[in-house]
């Protein structure tokens, strides 16, 4: 039996979001001081040890900020795609963004490109191009059909493009020499290990913030779209325009994240579901919660992945999947009520 609405003894969504905000602030403030080397607090303002301040400002802080941005973007994207496709298994990578980016990166490693443009590495640029290629491909393939773009067709086209690109990546790995092929494999696992300085953070920040603003502007539309396209249409939503804006905003935002961090799985699938269980299906509340929770989740996972196998580090994608899978299962089984799944 599903719920009869929020119970009175339940914590209100305002408190839940407030708690998440505090957790987020705490996580972002603490995480930079954790890692292989302990950094004292006074490193923030120079402190006694120059190398500690260097590590903190050039590596730890950018890395934590990037993790937070990436986690937020992936969670927001997952939330949007789940609502848009009315499908609980939709992820930020459903439209083939991850495989497109991975293919771009694979091509780059195979050819051994090593230029940089405006502080952005060749790998990131080719990954972003790959992501854009896959989005455009899926969109053009499905919207030039006779019936216009149905979301079901789009979902399937995304999956088909993903599989095609994945086999192309395997092919690239097969024909590359072992060291290049290891680079490709490591990239596909995802992670924030290559971040030095703030240039990557700022680039990703620009994409993520503009994407987030567009999603924020369309939250009411998203609410109605999650009840079905015909409902949204008759309530006055400009369905095709809203869909196109959401697809492109979200895909570009994810493309930018993946280009720098590689495809980090599970955050985009899990974070929106967990938030939906805590907050409910109203996207006006769900959205800030997903942004905060996704950010915190990735910051925490990244911090653990830095510590757990020190002095080497665990690819964060492995950790998110390892932690996220069982936690998600536990949530599903422990709280059967009100799953809020479409």
């Amino acid at each position: 039996m599903a719920s009869q609405g929020p119970r009175e003894d339940e914590i209100g969504p305002g408190w839940t979001i407030g708690t998440m905000f505090c957790l987020a602030a705490l996580a972002v403030a603490w995480a930079p001081f954790w890692g292989m080397e302990h950094i004292p607090f006074d490193a923030l303002w120079g402190g006694a040890d120059d190398s500690a301040a260097d590590i903190l400002w050039k590596m730890r802080i950018p890395r934590v900020l990037l993790s937070f941005l990436a986690g937020s973007a992936l969670a927001a994207a997952g939330m949007v795609f789940q609502a848009l496709f009315r499908n609980p298994l939709a992820t930020p990578f459903t439209l083939g963004v991850a495989s497109g980016a991975s293919l771009g990166a694979a091509v780059c490693y195979h050819c051994g490109w090593s230029f940089a443009l405006l502080g952005v590495s060749a790998v990131s640029i080719s990954a972003l191009l790959g992501a854009v290629l896959s989005i455009v491909l899926v969109y053009v393939l499905t919207s030039t059909g006779r019936q216009g773009s149905s979301t079901a067709t789009m979902l399937l086209a995304g999956v088909a493009v993903s599989f095609t690109f994945s086999s192309l990546i395997l092919f690239m790995q097969y024909i590359s020499d072992p060291s290049k092929s290891f680079q490709m494999l490591r990239w596909v696992m995802g992670g924030m290990r290559n971040v030095v300085g703030f240039s990557d953070v700022l680039n990703v920040f620009a994409f993520v913030v503009s994407g987030c603003l567009i999603v924020w502007y369309l939250l009411l539309d998203l609410n109605l779209l999650s009840t079905g396209e015909d409902f949204a249409f008759t309530r006055g939503v400009n369905v095709n325009q809203a869909k196109a804006m959401l697809f492109f905003a979200v895909s570009l935002m994810v493309g930018a994240v993946v280009a720098v961090c590689g495809p980090i799985g599970f955050v985009g699938l899990m974070a929106p579901h967990i938030c939906r269980l805590l907050i409910g299906p109203d996207h006006r509340l769900l959205y800030p919660a997903a942004l905060l929770f996704g950010g915190v989740l990735l910051v925490v996972c990244d911090t653990i992945s830095r510590i757990i196998l020190a002095p080497t580090e665990l690819p964060v994608g492995i950790l998110t999947a390892l932690l996220g899978g069982p936690f998600f299962l536990w949530l599903l089984l422990a709280r059967r009520r009100d799953l809020g799944v479409f």
């Binding site: 009315r86 009840t227 299906p281 799944v341």
Partner: peptide, 13 residues
């Protein structure tokens, strides 16, 4: 079709 909202939420939308 599955609509996860309550009647009141739905009507406000």
């Amino acid at each position: 079709r599955v609509i996860p909202f309550t009647v009141e939420q739905f009507l406000l939308m």
